[in-house]
Every structure is written in structure tokens, then in C-alpha cells.
Design a protein around this nucleic acid. Structure first.
Lengths: 237, 237
DNA sequence: CTAATAGTGTCTCTCAGACACTATCCG
DNA sequence: CGGATAGTGTCTGAGAGACACTATTAG
């Protein structure tokens, strides 16, 4: 038998295969706090419970795992998040009562303003603050997935400006610093923070200014390549 | 219908599910070079080609994904590697001709001496240097998996002593530095390297010494917690 | 003017890089 | 002694932390 014959005869469904899902921990920043998107489960198991957005791969629709999670997130938010990153994969025989199950989990960031209208119109989806989610039982092992995403994002805020993707397209340096401070859980030195940004040349100066109270603040935009930039020296934890 | 009834009726195999495999990029260090374990494929597809060790989840045998890859690696090396870490998961409709396929890939490290006997006795497994593997077509997308593992390990050698797990239980500081140098691809300052190690308190001084030529070198052992330690400042790339 | 927030100047301290030095073994 | 490798002393420079300072708006 050659490979062609083997493939022609091969019946994928003749073998046991674990359930495969994708899940996403989608963060945003609004009103001085981090928020995470959760959805109410419409079906068993854990029907009625809240959990992370996600679901089964649709082999006919999804070309890749990332397409699958982006499709799921778009269903809830109306848009594709500007930052997404694979977090981890959990697979075992006990996380889903239906059987051996594997979930590929992603961390994503989005601006609150960019999707608030859509989320308000989706009955079963809402933002909760990270304080709320930490005291809330989620479906399956989604509390653990959230915890890992939260921890990774905290680490990232020490050596990258990835958290900036939770802000609107255009933002002030003070806003960017505040997101980092909330993630790290301590205040940062304004000077250190700005020195790093300036040297790394990660932002586009829009030339515009915004004023609320006090001196108007310069507005910046993230360079697309900022998503991958890593400072060689961490901020202190 | 309640959840119990739903679960009783649920037939996992009634739904399409991607193929799920685990793969491992197992590194070791021997004769001043990094090596990777590859195995010859016994079955279609890609029969006869070399690829990374791995394979399907065995739902009856494996409780978790990590158990699955450790089982696969133990089959080839005879032992459980002292360091293993999830690398990434690739899933799409084109990587495996049999259908939509997901692989969860791990990076692992092992001492050459600890498993050489077993590998020599396994017909279809062998070590190849990283120079060799980079010019070798591997099955599926295993070249890409290797590349990602190699890149991550290089990064890790800038801010951790994870590469030390590719050495025997007991080693000299010069040996440890050499592994890092090979991974990073440039020589390091002896003083900087040792200063970091000393401050972080990651090693156990065995009190023993080993001499080849010249002054005898002190022998050290890795503390188990060294696997998770991260320096706050990177070595320069 | 004051209040408020944005943004800068500058000192200290830690730690990586560089490199010369000393130490301990062999023959 | 010299050759080889292990290990240290010490200076420089980059960059984070700290914090006081100036700048620009509103009222």
C-alpha cells in the first residue's frame, strides 16, 4: 500500500479523538479597571453558567485554530481584536464531562469603546471586572485559564507595551501608564516609563492633544510592530 | 432535559473532531553542540521520513496532554526528561493530509548521558545536531515546530538557566556557560554569567571538583526551582 | 493668582560588559 | 618553571528608581 492508497482508505472518524475547543480571555480597560468578557452558556454542560467565550472548531468554516477563536470573539464583540496571542493548551480526561477534551486558549486585548455597542446588544455576553471574575465560579476550568492569562499579561506589562492594545487607537502616555499600573498592581515612575517608550520608539506621535483638566496631553498611536517588542530590562515587580 | 440526561445521551463520536497529537522537541547538549531527537516514521503519512517524537493521544492510557508527551518521550529515551514545557499548539486543515489536525508541541531537555544507551537501542530514534536538522526536511510541519522551540530556548537562555537541564545532574560553571553560549550564538562574559548565578542562588555546590586539564572545577547541581527562575535583566543578544 | 495634569532634569544604584588579574592543577 | 583552565577584582556604561522641578491649560 502506498501513501495515496492509505489516505484514500483512511477514515478519520474511525478513531477516537478528544473534543477540541478554543477559548479566549479577552481583556479591556475601562474606568480605571481591567475587565474580562464572559458569556452565559446556552447549552449543557454547565448550561446557565458563565464562562469564557469559545467553542468547538468548525472544520468546514475554520482554516486554523486562530481563525476559530477570532470567529468566536467576533460573534460576541462584532470586531476582530487588535491583539491576540496563544496562551496555553489544556487537555485531560476530566475537564469536560463529555469526555477527553482539549482546549486551546488565547489571550486577547481590545478597546472598550470599539466593541461596547455590540456587546450591549448581545444578550449573553458582558464585561466583568477582574475583581468580580476572581470570585465567580466559571464553567469547566475557565477560572484556571483566566488566572494564567492574567498572570502572563502581568508579566508582559513588565517588559512590553502589549497592554496598550486594551486602549483605544489613540491614547495619552498617562493612560498607557495607568493600564500597566493596574496590571502590575503598583504605581510606576513616570520618568522611567516614558524613558523606555522614547528609546524603544514604539509610538507614533499623532500631533494631536487632548485636554480634560490641566495641561493638554499629547496623543499617541501604537506602531503595529509594538506587539512583538521586548525591553531587555524588566520593570521591577 | 437536565444535564445528567444530556450527558447520558451525548455521543462524543457523533461529532466531527480534529485529530489530536502531541509532539516534542527534545534537546540535549553533547560534544559542544546542541542536538535534537528525531524518529523515523513507521507509518503513513510521511512513512520513512524523519520527524519529531510524538503521536496520538491514547484516551485510555493518558490522563493529560503532558502525560501523553512524557509517555512518548519515555518510549524513545527510556526516561522522563527533567525539564518539559508547553511550546505552542498548531491546528489547521492542511498540516496533515488525513484531515483537520491539532498538535500540542512541547520543548524538553535531557542529559545526553542519561539516555544515550536507550536511544542507541531504539532503531528508529537518533540525535542530530541543530545544524543538521535545519537542513533536513521533517514530516508535517515539524521543521516549524523545531524552529519555534529553538527560538524560545534561545530567548530563555538570556534570562533563565533552563538550558542547564540539558546537562548531566552535576556540571561545572564553564559547562553551563558553554550551553548558553551555543544557544545564544555568541560568547558570554564569564564574570557576568557567574555574578548572576551567584546572586540568584540557583545552584547547589556539591563540594566536589573535577579536573581535566588545568585547575579543577567546582561541581554544581541545579536547584529544582531553577526551572522557573527569571532574571529581571536579560543578557545582551 | 491657584489647581490640576503633562512632561523634564538629574542624581543614585544596580548590574551587564570588558578585561586584566590571581589561583590551582599538570608535567 | 610554563601551559591550561578556574575563578576574582574592578572599572565603565546603560538604564531603572526616586523625586523635585518646569510647562500648559482652566478658572
Amino acid at each position: 500500500m502506498n501513501e495515496q492508497e492509505y489516505l484514500a482508505k483512511y477514515d478519520k472518524n474511525a478513531y477516537l479523538s478528544p473534543l477540541v475547543t478554543v477559548d479566549g480571555v479577552l481583556f479591556t480597560y475601562h474606568e480605571e479597571t481591567l475587565k474580562v468578557l464572559i458569556v452565559e452558556r446556552a447549552n449543557y454542560p454547565n448550561k446557565g453558567m458563565w464562562g469564557l467565550p469559545g467553542g468547538f472548531i468548525d472544520e468546514t468554516q475554520d482554516k486554523t485554530l486562530e481563525h476559530a477563536i477570532l470567529r468566536k470573539l467576533k460573534e460576541k464583540t462584532g470586531i476582530i481584536p487588535p491583539y491576540i496571542e496563544q496562551l496555553c493548551t489544556i487537555g485531560n480526561d476530566s475537564r469536560d464531562k463529555r469526555g477527553w477534551s482539549v482546549t486551546v486558549c488565547y489571550t486577547a486585548l481590545i478597546a472598550y469603546q470599539a466593541c461596547q455597542h455590540n456587546i450591549d446588544s448581545v444578550e449573553s455576553a458582558k464585561w466583568v471586572t477582574i475583581d468580580e471574575i476572581e470570585n465567580m465560579p466559571l464553567a469547566f476550568d475557565h477560572n484556571e485559564l483566566y488566572r494564567q492569562a492574567r498572570e502572563r499579561l502581568k508579566q508582559k506589562s513588565l517588559y512590553s507595551i502589549v497592554p496598550g492594545f486594551a486602549l483605544p487607537d489613540v491614547f495619552t502616555l498617562t493612560e498607557l501608564q495607568r493600564v500597566h499600573e493596574v496590571l502590575i498592581g503598583k504605581t510606576l515612575q513616570k520618568k522611567s516609563f516614558r524613558r523606555r517608550l522614547e528609546q524603544a520608539d514604539l509610538l507614533i506621535d499623532t500631533g494631536e492633544k487632548r485636554q480634560e483638566t490641566g495641561r493638554p496631553a499629547n496623543l499617541y498611536r501604537l506602531k503595529p510592530e509594538s506587539a512583538d517588542y521586548r525591553f531587555i530590562r524588566n520593570l521591577e515587580f
